[in-house]
Design a protein around this nucleic acid. Structure first.
Lengths: 210, 210
DNA sequence: CTAGAATCTAGTCACCGTCTAGACGTCGTT
DNA sequence: AACGACGTCTAGACGGTGACTAGATTCTAG
């Protein structure tokens, strides 16, 4: 099933080459026929492993989420004060997103965002790690709603920072500053305050005391 | 030059149809030949107005930035307390980005991010409006560096929020909450504090008074 | 060892973007 | 008014692509 056959392990080779091609050419430039050529097989061979182009892209996205999850976990494994850990997680997020811009596009593409399937599962796993990180970083069990909002705010900021870097609107260095600023802003916010000192009610309470 | 000829105004029609097709099918599904078919011209006709597919996409991106800029300006035109204005700008940002997800991809694609050309210029115009908004919202002249960081943090967060909605990781309603949270977090941050209470120069009255 | 399933080849199809030659309509110049 | 240049459009061709199919080949399970 997973083991070599005629070619060896075409599936794995295709995925590897596809990721390289993705990095160099973007997802538009990713051609099944070119992939087959590089692997030294006929143009129809990939079809035995991926029913169509989208299936290949989905597999890449799934793989991408898994690696993304690993990176996040690794960043969280380093101990330190809350702020430093948040920053580290943020940098890991942005670094991965920038180094794998085209992959990230696939991962977060609407097409892959079906409400089921392996890609969705891999994405869920990632967001669970992020969720755990919010508990972990604060060192306290939190109200679900608050934690979710905090998590989303964090994810959104990092995603956006990466987008700005990828779009060359800012440099990588500016991006790092942004990540640090974001971590600080998050911790200084009402949500962040509740991370370490629970309670207080939502919505319209001004975060900025006059 | 810009006026009707054989067809009428093919260029404008193509752009219109392209935008619709973009919204429905994404940029991958945007076909020049299909566009020509819908416009009732031969498959080679578009070439007279757009040298290649990328030129069409660039034109769309430019147009997109202009409309994006208009939306931002409109949101800023409504008076109100600082926080409300920031939220309004944020909602305008996210709304546009979600309603025009595929367009936004084009606008922020690396291909369009050349350091010159009409697309770049349109993008610059947009970011200048954003920059002006930061001054406008605070009602005070600020240190350039601080303002830029604040602006970028804002843009990144909104961009990311939109990305999460587009990827269906969160609902539009959650997105609105996110925008509000983000505005609050920004204003509560050190950067935000400096926005409303500049270190040296209080300038005019900080417009914060809910 | 054999039958069936997985894998791969080779050919075909429709579609695409791009390029070219040439027809057509418009406009500025003489 | 005539004409030549230019912008616009048509029609055909080329190479490339993803998808589908039939059939050969090879592995593997029984």
């Amino acid at each position: 099933m997973k083991r070599p056959f005629h070619h060896g392990n075409l599936r794995a080779v295709l995925l590897d080459q596809a990721e390289a091609m993705l990095r160099e050419q973007g997802s538009d430039g990713l051609s099944l026929r070119e992939l087959a050529r590089q692997a030294g097989v006929s143009h129809g061979a990939p079809r035995s492993h991926f029913i169509d182009r989208q299936a290949l892209l989905d597999a890449l996205a799934e793989q991408g989420f898994d690696r993304f999850t690993d990176r996040a976990r690794a960043a969280l494994a380093v101990p330190g004060p809350v702020r430093e850990r948040l920053r580290a997680l943020g940098r890991a997020y942005v670094d991965f997103a920038v180094d794998n811009a085209a992959l990230m596009e696939l991962m977060f593409a609407a097409k892959s965002s079906q409400s089921s399937g392996p890609v969705h599962d891999a994405a869920m796993r990632f967001f669970q790690v992020l969720d755990g990180a919010m508990v972990d970083v604060s060192g306290a069990a939190l109200d679900d709603g608050v934690r979710t909002r905090f998590k989303l705010l964090f994810a959104a900021t990092m995603q956006g920072t990466a987008a700005l870097i990828t779009a060359r609107r800012i440099t990588r260095e500016q991006g790092e500053t942004l990540v640090d600023d974001a971590a600080d802003a998050l911790l200084a916010s009402e949500l962040g305050a509740r991370l370490t000192a629970p309670r207080g009610e939502p919505a319209d309470a001004p975060a900025l005391s006059p």
